[in-house]
């Protein structure tokens, strides 16, 4: 059973490399990392659970991150979930839509590993970071 005192970070990204990237970015933090390769595969978990931080890629096979975020926001559980977009699509339109859907940050790939660590520390309290 998960330790409820450990913050949960969920990443939805189809890229295998990005999974490794997040593993390195959270290695020194006392957080639980859960990575899903698509919006559909994350749905069962997210329908019932609110992570402390949710990283969403935009361009993925199947449902894209912007449409998925709109869908998530319609669930009472996720009205206030802290969401960070991570995308190779560095376009103003995507930033605007993400912001309208309440994403608090928009990070473009490639970002340094430290950028992930810093964002996590900015939005959640962990034993390792605070």
């Amino acid at each position: 059973m998960a330790d409820k005192s450990i913050p949960i970070i969920v990443v939805v990204d189809d890229s295998r490399s990005m999974r490794a990237f997040f593993e390195r970015g959270t290695a020194q933090l006392n957080v639980e990392l859960m990575v899903f390769e698509s919006a559909v595969k994350s749905w069962t978990y997210l329908e019932a659970n609110k992570p402390d931080l949710l990283f969403l890629n935009i361009k993925m096979p199947g449902k894209d991150g912007l449409i998925f975020l709109k869908e998530l926001r319609e669930l009472p559980l996720h009205k206030e979930t802290t969401v960070i977009m991570i995308s190779s699509k560095d376009y103003a339109q995507d930033r605007t839509v993400a912001s309208q859907l309440g994403a608090v940050e928009f990070v473009t790939k490639p970002m340094p590993i430290k950028a992930i660590t810093d964002i996590i520390l900015k939005y959640i309290k962990t034993d390792s970071g605070n």
Partner: peptide, 13 residues
Amino acid sequence: EMSIEERELYDNL
């Protein structure tokens, strides 16, 4: 500007 570790990850990406 990337570290060796980041280069390895981004080469894969």
